[in-house]
Amino acid sequence: MSGIVDTLISAAVGFAAGMVGSTVNERLKSGVGSLEAELKRLDDLHDKITSLLLTPPAERISLLREATAMRRRLGINLRALVTDAPAFQSISQRLSRLDRVIGDAEDGAPSTPEREQELEEIARGVRQAVKSRSVLSGSWRLLRGR
C-alpha cells in the first residue's frame, strides 16, 4: 500500500515539476521573442534614419515623425523588457547617442560616412547590450545559440 502511495506522490511531484518547467520555458521563449521584435524595430529605425539622411532636408518631415515615434516605442519597450538597471543604463547611453543623430537629421545634416558609421556602431551597441547584458542573455544563448 505504502509503495503505491509513494509512486503516486512521485508521479504527482514529477507532473507538477514538468508543468512548472514548461511554463518557465514558454515565458523565456516569449521574453526572447519580444526582445527579437525590438531588435527588428531597431533595424527598421536604423534604415529609416539612413533614408532620412539621404532625403533633402525640406522633404524630411514625415520620415522624421515616423523615426521619432519608432525611437519612442523602442525605448519604452526595451525599458519594459530589460529590467536590470545596469543593462538598461548601457542601452540608454546608446539611445541617447541615437537621439543626437536624429536631432542632426532634424536640423538638416546630410549623410556622411562618419555619420553612417556612428549609426551602425550605435545599432550594434544596442543589439549587443540587449543580447549580452540583459537577464535574458542566458536564455537567448540557449534558445538561439548566438
Binding site: L64, R65, T68, A69, R71, R72, D99, R100, I102, G103, E106, D107
Partner: peptide, 11 residues
C-alpha cells in the same frame, strides 16, 4: 504619455 519625442524639440 507623449507619443514621440523629437530630439530637436527636446534640445
Amino acid at each position: 504619455g507623449a507619443r514621440g519625442l523629437s530630439p530637436s524639440f527636446l534640445e
